[in-house]
Design a protein around this nucleic acid. Structure first.
Lengths: 227, 227
DNA sequence: TTGCCAAGTGTCATTCGCTGACATATTCTC
DNA sequence: GAGAATATGTCAGCGAATGACACTTGGCAA
């Protein structure tokens, strides 16, 4: 599983995040190819736009056949998904480190706040800053919307794990994840509207939306704080 | 707009819901073709599965060319989306009829409850019971997930309209819509797990999830009601 | 009625995402 | 080093989606 197996995006629960290092030469090569494909794809997406970049082009740039591309990634979108998963992964583990007395939603919020730099750094990592990319390109943003359900499912799983409930039967992790995710989307939107200032501002936008959430669900919206 | 214009799925705000009757012969033909395409598509989806049904097949069954299909619907998914929109439309108008003192989320919940039969009936309407179809077929369910963001956006718009806030700048309608939508998804899942009893049961599942939502966001999940 | 314009449709060709089948090359194991 | 396992390339093909062009049909006015 994990990095080793290409075309493998199924996310079973509780698969160890540790893929220490690929010992064999085969696996090292595979990991390299996969990473190269991913980096190249993200770079091309960024340079030419998502729909404009063909899988053929990606493969050719890397120096493999298109067929090989699809052996590593089940779809074009999957490259994005996979890149974005890394960020979600970090958030998930940050979530587990939060003190147990915090409510799931609060813990999620705080995990995000505390590990923001780490998340931001990860998104700027070798992967060609997938997250930032998505934030920047309208095409990618649209693709990201389609990917959304998977991410939300992953988040719900993480919340369930932390709280020790069964995500299969318990609705609460899903609702929490949905609200959280929506807040991020809204925060990002607002950040864009403000002209994309620094990343600290993005975090601030996120937090603002997150803090509005409980009221939005429960209250009557007397009228309060827009924008 | 609406039924009249083929390949037109853009949803500008405040387009009148009234398309009284197509006066011209041209427009009547067009409306007929569109409806036939939709009905046929949904029927074939139901009989053979969504991915198994080709656009070619749909067009051939109706007696038009594949090209014409794509002149009426911008994509294969759009047929589904369009059918499902009708149901959302009803919910949106039901929402506007709820007493003003209800919180948006509650109003949404109650609108759903009160107009359930109407919604159910609409879904069984001439359109080949799109909603039910989606609920039944796993393939369609997956397609429905992808469609989800559009539906949520529509719902958010409806909530914003009811409450008189600006959906562009105010986050609350979006959060409300997201939570509501998630509850529906969860309710449906539960209903499936129970072996798909009658539609009344589906409504009950929906309502149960909806009533759990506020707690899921705010509280500490002491442990309560699973299943 | 006649005839013109516009809208709707069919046909053809093409692009692109994606998959199966088979042959070849590379790595691993003994 | 031989043989098994795996990774890759090549080729062929399907289906979704789009553009270009020709043809038919409905709407409308002279």
């Amino acid at each position: 599983m994990l990095v080793g197996a290409p075309a493998d995006l199924a996310k079973g629960p509780s698969m160890s995040t540790a893929s220490p290092e690929p010992t064999g030469l085969r696996e090292r090569k595979k990991a390299h190819t996969r990473r190269t494909l991913m980096d190249t794809a993200l770079r091309l997406f960024h340079e030419n736009g998502y729909p404009e970049t063909t899988t053929e082009e990606i493969a050719a740039t890397v120096g493999v056949s298109q067929r090989t591309f699809f052996r590593y990634f089940p779809s074009k979108e999957a490259v994005l998904l996979s890149a974005v998963e890394d960020v979600d992964e970090l958030l998930a583990s940050a979530l587990l480190e939060r003190p147990g007395h915090e409510s799931p939603f609060t813990a999620l919020r705080n995990a995000m706040r505390d590990h923001w730099e780490q998340l931001a750094h990860a998104s700027l990592h070798q992967r060609g800053d997938a997250a930032n990319l998505i934030a920047t390109s309208p095409d990618l943003a649209e693709a990201n919307v389609r990917i959304d359900p998977s991410r939300r499912a992953r988040l719900a799983g993480a919340v369930a794990e932390r709280t020790g409930v069964d995500a299969e039967t318990d609705p609460r992790p899903w609702i929490t994840a949905a609200v959280f995710h929506t807040c991020l989307g809204l925060g990002h939107r607002q950040w864009v509207r403000e002209g994309r200032p620094g990343q600290e501002r993005l975090l601030a936008c996120f937090l603002r939306q997150l803090d509005l959430a409980p009221e939005a669900v429960a209250s009557d919206w007397p009228d309060a704080g827009t924008t």
